[in-house]
Design a protein around this nucleic acid. Structure first.
Ligand SMILES: [Mn+2]
Ligand SMILES: [Mn+2]
Ligand SMILES: [Zn+2]
Ligand SMILES: [Zn+2]
Lengths: 152, 152
DNA sequence: GAAGAAATTGAAAATGACAATCAGAAAGCT
DNA sequence: AGCTTTCTGATTGTCATTTTCAATTTCTTC
């Protein structure tokens, strides 16, 4: 089994553990706790969201640790950091599933995920025109969701 | 000549003056100075960029005024505020030309503008699927430009 | 399982972009 | 000119994020 295939089959806990080992980091109870909460979390949460959720059962875990650990998750590839322009970073678990982008309702905050392979392909073609090598991209549509359109 | 057509033919100075009149704002020498610098500016500059550029000839103009005036330009539609995720808002003059999005080199900071009507159309279709009404969007491709790809 | 080196934690303080404040200045209407 | 409203610019406030640092924990090595 080649390395790439193995990576795709690894779950997020394994990816994180491997990263920790590879970088000479340490396994701490806090990191494990935050990892569990992270994986069981609803999508698109802020550091503050997760911090307050953790406080109930783990009041000793500090805000800075939650923040640093989420950054670590993003670094090792099990989290994606999002910015919907509201001045607060958001995170979502990343798995091997298909990439998606977001519709963001500017009225109620609803976030809809969408996948459009044709757009992905076209943006690759655009980049190719400029000999540009895409590392990541951000594609967000802001406006009113179905419910908020009716209300206004 | 209908109103819409006239708007498209108006230049940015006229749009701004109309906006000032309509909102009961005042014409000040600072706003005129900043407007001229803004229109003659290279694209995708930060508030700080413009502030320091203005300082040479207009050392009396304060940072807050530059900031407020750029926001005003965005409000009245002659500027677009951009966020390339580096923690600093950027601005570019907006005219009636075609909408564009950006390629951003994460190594040297080069910004390339691109236009892809098919992507615009596809994202409209995506929104329609969810009965979502798009007000604005953000589509940015981050990675290495041609030059930086060769160097690495 | 003790010892030592290295990383981590959490409370607090620092940072930095942006926004708000406010007294004096300027604009612009009558 | 007089008067009302807006504007300016130095300063201060705000707030998410990042850094600091002493105490603690992890983990390798004996
Ligand atoms: Mn998502
Ligand atoms: Mn541009
Ligand atoms: Zn909504
Ligand atoms: Zn470059």
């Amino acid at each position: 089994m080649n390395r790439l295939l193995r990576v795709y089959l690894m779950d997020q806990v394994t990816i994180f553990n491997d990263y920790v080992r590879r970088k000479g980091l340490k396994n701490t109870s806090q990191r494990l706790t935050i990892l569990e909460a992270f994986l069981g979390s609803k999508l698109h949460f802020s550091t503050e969201d997760l911090y307050f959720r953790l406080r109930k059962d783990h009041p000793k875990i500090g805000y800075a640790t939650v923040h640093r650990t989420l950054k670590l998750f993003a670094e090792c590839g099990i989290a994606r950091e999002l910015d919907f322009g509201d001045g607060q970073a958001r995170f979502e678990p990343l798995n091997a599933d298909q990439h998606h982008d977001h519709l963001v309702c500017t009225n109620c905050g609803l976030i809809i995920e969408f996948t459009e392979p044709q757009i992905e392909k076209l943006q690759e073609q655009v980049a190719a025109q400029y000999n540009f090598k895409i590392e990541r991209h951000r594609h967000e549509l802001y406006g009113l969701c179905s419910k908020c359109t009716k209300l206004s």
